[in-house]
């Protein structure tokens, strides 16, 4: 039982994750088309709905090219690191309150560990290796530059991300994500209490997921494809999958840390364990995550890419002091208002 129940949860969670990734790609293409006044994919299936599954199938039957100059083992290792990291961090994120199935209490989380946040930050750091190693192993100038840029960018923004989280930890008094969500009932969303921390965290999340305006590692006009220039077939798909999975996890994290998880100001959380309420709270959580995903796409098609020195300046000279300021703000709030 110790193994079976988690395995069942993992199977369900991974299928949901893969399903969302597939349709996230579809909606990204559709929304970008609408923003640019195009139609977007509309050939495969009704409204182009089968476009993404078709693309995945196509990638399965593409030739896997490993350049002769590349370091073979590391070239294969890099996508494995990226994808493993991206597909295991979901495990510590709860997406609803406890529910009852057949009289058994079920927690809507795969692994309810007491260092949830720490685990996510640690694994996000390992993810940097995937990009850096892929850039180095390809032995291609574009890849190397992309890998270098991505590693420098990700570690720079990880700092402000880590410091922003400290503000949340002060108010929750715990690293467990359940406790963090439950500390934000009613109007006590962290986004309202510590707006600076919220903004720095969201910006850092964009940088960590390599999304525009921070997608310098793969800036297509100057670096072709960046770190995945020399990858084809399913190895390319693995990077792609990892990127979109990271986006989903980042949205979940923003929701749990700053937007109150499944809490809404006007819905009384005391009644959450009865009848339909668990279902409604899961829907609230999913709605917030979907909105954030839309926000990711929206920003991508609204804001141009940074220049590299601007990116580093923003990270070290704006985000870092701001997140420290947020930390002091929260500490003073605790002292003066005892929240």
């Amino acid at each position: 039982m110790v193994v079976l129940i988690p395995l069942a949860k993992i199977a369900i969670a991974i299928s949901i994750l893969l399903f969302i990734v597939t349709y996230l790609v579809y909606f990204e293409r559709k929304i970008s088309a609408w923003i640019q006044d195009r139609i977007g994919p509309n050939r495969v299936g009704p409204y182009g709905l089968l476009q993404s599954p078709a693309d995945v199938l196509k990638l399965f039957f593409k030739e896997d090219i490993v350049p002769s100059a590349a370091t073979k083992f590391v070239h294969s290792l890099a996508p494995v690191i990226s994808l493993t990291v991206a597909m295991s961090t979901y495990a510590v994120i709860p997406f609803g309150p406890d529910i009852e199935i057949f009289g058994q209490k079920v927690r809507l989380i795969v692994a309810d560990v007491d260092v949830g946040i720490l685990f996510i930050l640690a694994f996000a750091s390992i993810g940097v290796y995937g990009l850096t190693l892929s850039g180095w192993a390809s032995n291609n100038k574009y890849s190397l530059l992309g890998g270098l840029r991505s590693s420098a960018q990700m570690i720079s923004y990880e700092l402000s991300m880590g410091i922003s989280v400290v503000g949340v930890l002060i108010l929750a008094g715990s690293l467990r994500i359940y406790d963090i969500i439950n500390s934000q009932q009613g109007w006590m969303w962290n986004a309202f209490i510590q707006p600076i921390g919220f903004i720095t965290f969201v910006v850092a999340a964009f940088a960590e997921t390599n999304r525009l305006p921070f997608d310098l590692p793969e800036a297509e006009p100057e670096l072709v494809g960046g770190y995945h220039t020399e990858y084809s077939s399913l190895k390319f798909a693995m990077f792609f999958l990892a990127e979109y999975a990271n986006m989903i996890i980042a949205s979940c994290l923003i929701t749990t840390l700053y937007l109150g998880g499944w809490h809404l100001p006007f819905i009384d959380s005391a009644t959450l364990s009865y009848g339909l309420m668990p279902l409604i709270s899961v829907m609230i959580f999913v709605a917030k995550v979907l909105f954030l995903l839309f926000f990711f796409i929206w920003v991508r098609w609204s804001i141009p890419r940074f220049r590299y020195d601007q990116l580093m300046n923003l990270g070290w000279k704006v985000m870092l002091p701001l997140s420290l300021l947020n930390l002091m703000w929260v500490a003073l709030l605790v002292y003066f208002f005892k929240i």
């Binding site: 996508p79 994808l83 295991s88 692994a111 693995m238």
Partner: peptide
């Protein structure tokens, strides 16, 4: 409490290794 977490990492690793293997299995 870490057993499910280790399982999740293992499943993710196996999934990635499967994709890695599949990349040279199906294509020309």
């Amino acid at each position: 409490q870490y057993i499910p977490l280790i399982l999740a990492i293992l499943v993710a690793l196996l999934f990635s290794l499967f994709l890695l293997k599949a990349s040279s299995l199906f294509g020309p």
